[in-house]
Design a protein around this nucleic acid. Structure first.
Length: 835
DNA sequence: CTCTCCCT
């Protein structure tokens, strides 16, 4: 009997069977509609190599896991929970008879951690692998290690809906390709990229599509704001226009997904939730605005922010495909073919962009403190693993060598991010910890703009549990309670519905986000001490409450959610979305005294004090006695580097010394002269300037330092002697004058500016650098005005001299202008003085 | 001018 009869996948079933018989890992590429998720697993249940063991099918989403299990069970003519079952968080439908188990990603990870041999499982199918979710990549890496070390007979089938040409080679495995089955979709582009807001452009395209085509329309916009805008612009069309996004209450989502009850045409304005997660019935036309919003994680601050960018090519393909499920469809792409060619093929794998703290803890528990040793498709980036380790070490989950501690193992018993697990594991009040962690994990039950105080949410959750009419989205509160209940069970504490102590809430938040405890900032005028709504976080970041927020009067906060701030926000830093007031005593318990020696730019002084600190927050100050010289030098050098070398005042002599040495560096690279350029001096401040800094405290002190001896001291024997020989400060000319040389950058010839009468009789241009470098002569009039620039004195006397003489003799009659400059006595005086 | 989307 064949479960795939009539499906495209039927053509490759025997090929897949044979490949799996002889290879532990096989890659199948099949587009949507081929039957790879809903029929193929049934075809593999009785393979001899499976030896009666189970098949696990991995799905990235719970809704998909349930749906796939239902389809597979129906293929056998059974109900779910018989031969085919599923297991997702909070829900399992499996029995002793179950041989094919559909699971979500987190479930598989937990199962592998509990039983690395996967006893009784013969095949694991990783579906939708093209999405390259962090957990799917992790599952593959762990499964490959299990195959290598414990279970040579375990098979893995990787299934991908889009063709990534590089994937087979990177996996090094047999590759099978199947046709899909979908109706053709006519993809249409604009001739040029549109200008203006995406909601206007999309609304215009929807109007046209309503006139030109039959059937329901699905339009993609980046977010809720744009969806609202487009809704307003389409208020008058002859169709039902409905929004669809993740935050929408389930009942309203249902209206968008099902056909309109009164049979009217439907227009759905959706975020990328409609790309893969939810399927809308009856769609014949897709309008793709071409934008998509996604989260960018900044490992430096541990914060993330939402960024709106262009859709990728594979996402646009997914979106367009939504028009071809019922019959032939149309997809309007609101950009030009030229832009299409420039779109990135796909988003980078989540592994390369996400917060790696959960992954790093999982791997430590797995026994792999160094994640790079596993077989990855894309290895977790080392700097992110480093940041994750730092966080986990701070939570006592890892030891110094990166191995999991008993506390780390305990954190993994709470299925959530290690930060929240730490809150749940160590929070003194277990019932409150469960409520707070659940609120922090789920989306906000309060609407936008209703204050940031987390305690208010705890109150709302508890009054809802008491059965009272209260605030908050009930569907969200239900999800929050489901999480809280699971964690209360793990901690073995009863539910608590009393009014929460707000400061206790803050203390719990501080456990999860230790770097986000914050102190109120003084306003710039220095008058208001609190109430400005602006805070400094222990991480050093600034953050602000929304205008008029009730928490603005707090002296200290524990901030749970904030964004990383954007350029337009200036000094205020990030925006606080969720926080709780914090008892300053909690800060005190975490504080420690540290020596603070630093340059303060505003006052222009060296600050040397002891500070009682929590990260960037200073709770107390006392003077520091006996400042170690090394710290002083370090702090002053850092100050000069941040403000610039202009804090130091170089005399003309010091500048000349720098120019002389610089010239020699160019002329004689083999001699290793020190680098006295601005960049070179800044790089070596501690070495050459350090000895001059022992009593420096202020900007004026810095300006008073005599730099010439400092620079001279930086030269090593016999450089001072060589410097005087090779790059002298002055040259003596035939008149007897000692004339100062002007050394120039980049090894140019130095300038000797001298009155031409002082050189009478001299044929050869003077030189420096041991005779190798002729000076550039600036010949001057008796008044010191330049009349000629030359490096060839001989030819000057023979020709140009006579033109100069003709021009100047009248103006300077008292000075000698001999017919024969070769024989006249060189002089800096007038004729009268000569006779 | 906050709020793409998942998972234990």
């Amino acid at each position: 009997m064949s479960f795939s009869a009539g499906l495209p996948i039927a053509d490759v079933v025997s090929e897949v069977r044979e490949a799996l018989a002889s290879h532990p890992l096989v890659l199948l590429q099949a587009p949507p509609g081929a039957g790879k998720s809903t029929a193929l697993p049934l075809e593999l249940l009785n393979e001899p190599w499976l030896a009666g063991q189970k098949v696990l099918v991995l799905q990235p989403r719970r809704v998909a896991a349930r749906a796939v299990a239902a389809r597979l069970a129906a293929g056998l003519g059974e109900d779910v929970g018989g031969t085919v079952g599923y297991r997702v968080r909070f829900e399992a439908r499996v029995s002793a008879a179950t041989r094919l188990e559909v699971v979500t990603e987190g479930i598989l990870t937990r199962r592998l951690q509990r039983d690395p041999e996967l006893a009784g499982v013969g095949l694991v199918v990783l579906d939708e692998f093209h999405e390259r979710s962090l957990n799917a990549d992790l599952a593959l890496a762990l499964l490959r290690e299990v195959q290598g070390a414990l279970r040579e007979d375990l098979r893995v089938l990787v299934m991908s809906a889009t063709l990534d040409e590089s994937l087979p080679a990177r996996l090094g495995v047999p590759f099978i390709r199947s046709e899909g089955r979908a109706y053709p979709v006519d993809v249409r582009y604009l001739t040029a990229d549109p200008v203006g807001r995406v909601e206007d452009v999309v609304a215009g395209a929807v109007r046209r599509a309503l006139e030109e085509h039959e059937g329901d329309i699905l339009a993609f916009l980046p977010g809720v704001r744009e969806i609202r805008g487009a809704l307003g612009r389409l208020a008058d069309v002859n169709a039902v226009v409905l929004p669809l996004y993740g935050d929408l209450p389930v009942r309203e989502q249902g209206r968008a997904l099902l056909p309109d009850p009164s049979g009217r045409r439907k227009v759905v304005l959706a975020t990328n939730i409609a790309e893969t997660s939810l399927t809308i019935q009856g769609v014949r036309v897709v309008v793709d605005g071409g934008l998509s919003r996604s989260q960018v994680f900044d490992p430096g601050s541990g914060l993330s922010r939402l960024v709106t960018g262009r859709v990728t090519q594979d996402a646009a393909t997914q979106r367009a495909g939504r028009a071809g499920r019922l019959g032939p469809g149309v997809a309007y792409r609101l950009w030009s073919p030229r832009t299409q060619a420039l779109l990135p093929a796909a988003r980078p794998p989540e592994m390369l962009e996400a917060d790696l703290a959960p992954l790093t803890l999982e791997l430590a528990q797995w026994g792999t403190p160094d994640p790079t040793t596993l077989l990855w498709l894309d290895a977790p980036p080392a700097p992110r693993v480093g940041a994750a380790r730092e966080l986990l070490t701070g939570l006592n989950a890892l030891d110094d060598s990166g191995r999991v501690t008993p506390e780390g193992a305990r954190l993994l018993e709470f299925p959530t991010h290690p930060r929240l697990a730490h809150l749940l594991s160590t929070g003194a009040n277990g019932a409150l910890a469960a409520d707070v962690a659940a609120l922090l994990e789920e989306r906000d039950p309060f609407p936008v703009g209703t204050g940031t105080d987390l305690s208010e949410r705890v109150s709302a959750l508890r009054s809802w549990r008491r059965g009272e009419q209260g605030r908050g989205d009930v569907a969200v509160l239900e999800r929050i309670e489901r999480l809280s209940k699971q964690w209360r069970r793990t901690r073995n504490v009863p539910v608590d519905n009393a009014e929460p102590d707000h400061l206790e809430v803050g203390a719990l938040v501080a456990l999860a986000y230790p770097e986000r405890v914050a102190l109120a900032r003084e306003s710039t005028s220095g008058l208001a001490r609190s109430g400005t709504g602006r805070f400094l976080l222990a991480s050093g970041q600034g953050a602000a409450l929304p205008e008029g927020d009730a928490l603005a009067g707090s002296r200290a906060l524990a901030v749970a959610h904030l964004d990383a701030g954007s350029a337009g926000w200036g000094q205020a830093g990030g925006r606080i979305f969720l926080a709780a007031p914090l008892d300053p005593a909690v800060l005190s318990t975490r504080a420690s005294w540290v020596d603070a020696v630093r340059w303060d730019t505003r006052s222009g002084t060296l600050v040397a004090q002891q500070e009682r600190r929590v990260g960037a927050l200073v709770l107390d100050i006392r003077p520091l006695r006996d400042l170690p010289g090394e710290q002083r030098v370090e702090a002053l050098a850092a100050g000069i580097r941040s403000e610039g070398l202009h804090l130091l005042k170089f005399t003309p002599e010091a500048e000349q010394l720098r120019a002389r040495v610089d010239s020699l560096r160019h002329w004689r690279p083999e001699d290793s002269w020190p680098d006295l350029t601005d960049a070179g001096l800044l790089a070596t401040l501690e070495d050459w300037l350090g000895p001059s800094l022992t009593t420096v405290r202020t900007r004026d002190d810095l300006a008073r330092i005599n730099l010439l001896p400092a620079l001279q001291g930086w030269l090593t024997w016999p450089q001072p002697q060589h410097l005087d020989q090779l790059a002298p400060t002055h040259l003596t000319v035939p008149s007897g004058s000692r004339v100062r040389l002007e050394y120039r950058p980049d090894g140019q010839n130095p300038i000797l500016a001298v009155k031409l009468q002082e050189l009478f009789g001299l044929a050869d241009t003077p030189t420096v650098n041991g005779g190798r470098t002729p000076v550039l002569l600036h010949l001057l009039s008796p008044a010191g005005r330049p009349v000629q620039v030359t490096q060839d004195l001989r030819s000057f006397w023979n020709s140009s001299y006579f033109e100069v003489r003709r021009d100047l003799r009248g103006r300077y009659p008292k000075h000698p202008w001999p017919d024969d400059p070769w024989t006249h006595e060189p002089t800096r005086f007038t004729k009268k003085r000569l006779t």
